[in-house]
Design a protein around this nucleic acid. Structure first.
Lengths: 219, 219
DNA sequence: GTTGTTGGCCAACGCCTGTTGACATCATCG
DNA sequence: CGATGATGTCAACAGGCGTTGGCCAACAAC
């Protein structure tokens, strides 16, 4: 298995500086060569997994993208499943929601979600995860884990500890947005610009976060 | 290609009565034998596709479930893709929303959606479609089609013709529910009983259908 | 009774898959 | 220099896949 932290994050193949464990400096500003190729492989894997999901992605195709032999992929990652794990590193980078005034909370959440998906087009990790989780049990478990360790705590901090149920429903809405906009690309949803999405969806999220006390059919 | 109607519905393998084209009556109350086995195959295919998605489902496995030779599947349906088409027949059975008083519209929509998913456990068609659409372009197109021919018109009838954008956002919410509850089975969502889901989500749908005129940050 | 059609099984083809192990290359260090 | 371990290539394996074509039994039509 890969080294993975408890919150569902996995270390990327890139290394912060050029120092190696025995103290030697190597080529400067780049880690060992194997780390570089490992990173190339992970990047290629993410693209493939994101575009086609787990099953349709082949190790041979990833290796071709990375311009390397398929057997190297196996040597570095052990198996397709473990490579998949390595490609699944996700950090939602949730902001501190307690600093947000409650009446702007839903807007901030929706906008952050959009930013996270559309801000860095090279970051396919979320796409990988969602596309695969639908058919792959391992990826689904990872989503459970991310929800439990990142989303639920962040919302609980802002709304109080009894918010777990409501946090899940907010997830429902955001994942629905992701599915229709990025996976299915339903034209009516995919065509909206981020501002329009935020404006339209924030009130709905608001209705979950701060439910009106009682709808009362006929007062 | 299979014979398919324009709204995305495909005829089931079952035949309404026992008459055959040349006028002979055959065994009565059941169609031709081939129609029966075709129906068995489609049923098995639906279960497999629903449980594992398109790519992981093999013709051999479907044939084994149907207790028949894999080559028969090919003979009857031509290819795996065409069998998939046959398994994708969907009729959302949307009620006439114009008969619903506007203030109960969101509640009715959410409840109908839950009924449709959970009412008949043997009807896997929706699960097939959603699970596959995430990685299969053909299935995604089918969802586009169903949205355009079934969902959008029904909502437009109730809300007026300018409702297309809002209809899509409602879809976003409902598909989000389906993904978290039936595909990912996020515990916090999957554990809720249908009444709780309706109560929690209807106000959010309401916020889309009848947006408050202006949120006005500081009045 | 012969013929043709229908429903079905069996064995195989060619291809692609994840995976493995033997061999080449190269840098590093004694 | 030679040794050693990391890095990478090549060729192959075994198994599963969708798909094909040939053969057989049952049965209706002539």
């Amino acid at each position: 298995m890969m080294a993975s932290r408890q919150d569902g994050t996995v270390q990327d193949g890139t290394v912060p500086d050029g120092t190696v464990q025995d103290g030697t400096v190597q080529d400067a500003a780049q880690g060992k060569r194997s780390d570089r190729t490992k990173a190339v492989i992970v990047r290629a894997a993410r693209e493939r997994f994101a575009a086609h999901g787990y099953e349709r992605t082949t190790i041979r195709a990833i290796a071709a993208d990375a311009e390397i032999d398929p057997s190297m992929v196996m040597r570095y990652f052990g198996s397709k499943e473990q490579l998949f794990d390595a490609a699944l590193s996700i950090d939602l980078r949730l902001p501190d929601l307690t600093a947000v005034p409650p009446e702007r909370l839903s807007e901030v959440i929706v906008r952050h979600f959009l930013d996270r998906w559309e801000g860095d087009p090279a970051d396919d990790a979320l796409l990988v995860l969602l596309r695969s989780a639908v058919t792959n049990e391992r990826a689904a478990q990872r989503i459970h884990q991310i929800f439990g360790t990142q989303v639920a705590p962040a919302l609980a901090a802002a709304l109080g500890p009894e918010a777990a149920g409501r946090a899940a429903l907010v997830c429902t809405q955001l994942l629905g947005l992701a599915v229709t906009r990025y996976l299915l690309r339903l034209p009516a949803v995919a065509a909206l610009d981020p501002d329009a999405v935020t404006a339209a969806l924030a009130p709905a999220v608001e209705a979950i976060l701060h439910p009106r006390p009682r709808p009362r059919p006929q007062p």
